[in-house]
Amino acid sequence: MSVRTDNPNAQIATKLRALYLSVQEEAIPDRFLDLLEKLDAVERQSMPDVAE
């Protein structure tokens, strides 16, 4: 298996994107959804006139 082709930059670009996408396409972990919910809830409490 060799990475030598006539356009090594294209190979690199493809692999870089594949690696990146492998993470980007994961579902957002619950810890972040929960965190945002909490931050949002705290903020609403502290700002009485922002009802929704």
Binding site: L16, L19, Y20, L21, V23, Q24, E25, E26, I28, F32, L33, L36
Partner: peptide, 15 residues
Amino acid sequence: EMLAALPSLRAFAMS
């Protein structure tokens, strides 16, 4: 908006 950016932000951090 933050939620929308999170998948990419994670990919950036991971990379």
